[in-house]
C-alpha cells in the first residue's frame, strides 16, 4: 500500500530513524498476519498503533522487536538492517519490548528478573545501583524482591516489566497493551512513566485499547486493519477519524 511513504516524516533523514519497517510481510507458519507494512519511527517520536482485535498490532510489535522474522521486507533499527537477526540483537540495539500479557519470568524472583537485564547493560558493578534505581521507582518491588515473579499480581508484574524497561533506558520502547487490566491509578502511573521516557528522548510505539491515553501521549497514529496500515496521521487528525473507524463493525468472512 505504501502509505508509510506518504506519512509525514518528522525528522526526515532515515538514518536517524529509531525503527523502519520496509514492505514487511509476516506471519506464523502458514498464517499471514501482516501485509506490506511500511512504517518509520523517528528518534524520539511516539507512535500509537490502533486497530480492532486481530488487525495485526501484536504481530507488528513482534516484528519490530525481532520476535517474529518477516517473510518479506526488511527491518532497520537505528540505521542497521536487522531483518534476519535474532531478537537479542534488537534488544542490544536499543529496542525494548514490553509484550502483551505476562512478560516476566514467573520462576525467577523479582530481583533475579531485574538482575538479568541490569547485568547485561551495566555489568556486575552497576548491578547494585540499577536495582536501587528500580526499587526507588517502584518501592513495592523492593518489598517483594525475594518473591517469585509468578506470584505477583497482574499490576505488580507490569511494574516489574516497566522497571526493567526504565532502567534499561532504550532508544525505542514497544509497549503492547501496557495498561490492560490495571487499576486506574496504575494506568495513570504507567502513562506518567511513558511520558517521562518520551521527554528523555525515547521513541515509543504504543499499542493501547484506551485510545485517549494513547492519543494524549503520541504524535502520530497508525491505524492497522487486517494486517495493513490503512491510515497514518497526526493525533489531532486521528481523533476525528478514529470514531468512525473503531465503531464500524469489521467485515468478516
Amino acid at each position: 500500500m505504501g502509505l508509510g511513504g506518504a506519512a509525514p516524516a518528522k525528522n526526515g533523514a532515515d538514518v536517524s530513524a529509531a525503527l523502519e519497517l520496509r514492505r514487511v510481510y509476516a506471519g506464523y507458519g502458514p498464517f499471514r498476519a501482516l501485509f506490506d507494512v511500511n512504517l518509520t519511527i523517528a528518534a524520539g517520536e511516539a507512535v500509537a498503533l490502533v486497530g480492532s482485535n486481530g488487525a495485526g498490532k501484536t504481530s507488528l510489535a513482534r516484528v519490530a522487536s525481532g520476535l517474529v522474522t518477516p517473510s518479506e521486507g526488511s527491518v532497520v533499527v537505528n540505521g542497521r538492517d536487522l531483518t534476519r537477526a535474532p531478537a537479542y540483537r534488537y534488544a542490544r540495539a536499543g529496542v525494548a519490548h514490553a509484550p502483551e500479557g505476562r512478560s516476566v519470568f514467573a520462576t525467577l524472583t523479582v530481583e533475579e528478573n531485574l538482575e538479568l537485564s541490569i547485568h547485561r547493560i551495566r555489568g556486575r558493578k552497576g548491578l547494585k545501583a540499577g536495582l536501587e534505581q528500580a526499587y526507588a521507582l517502584y518501592p513495592i518491588l523492593g518489598e517483594r524482591r525475594q518473591q517469585l515473579a509468578g506470584t505477583l499480581s497482574g499490576g505488580e508484574q507490569r511494574m516489574l516489566t516497566m522497571a526493567r524497561v526504565l532502567v534499561d533506558a532504550p532508544r525505542l520502547l514497544i509497549a503492547d497493551e501496557l495498561s490492560l487490566g490495571l487499576a486506574p491509578l496504575m494506568v495513570q502511573h504507567t502513562y506518567e512513566a511513558l511520558q517521562q521516557l518520551r521527554q528523555s528522548g525515547v521513541a515509543l510505539l504504543v499499542i493501547e485499547q484506551h485510545v485517549t491515553h494513547a492519543l494524549a501521549l503520541c504524535d502520530r497514529v497508525v491505524i492497522l486493519d487486517r494486517g495493513t496500515p490503512t491510515w497514518i496521521g497526526s493525533s489531532e487528525q486521528a481523533r476525528t477519524r478514529l470514531q468512525t473507524v473503531l465503531h464500524s463493525p469489521p467485515t468478516s468472512n
Binding site: 535474532p86 534488544a91 533475579e112
Partner: peptide, 25 residues
Amino acid sequence: TMVGLKMRAVVESPRLTELNGLAAD
C-alpha cells in the same frame, strides 16, 4: 554467577530472555 540465572531464564522462556538482550541459543 549470572550464568545459572541465565540458564534458568532460558528454560522458562527463550523468547523473553532474548527480549532482555541475551542470546538464548
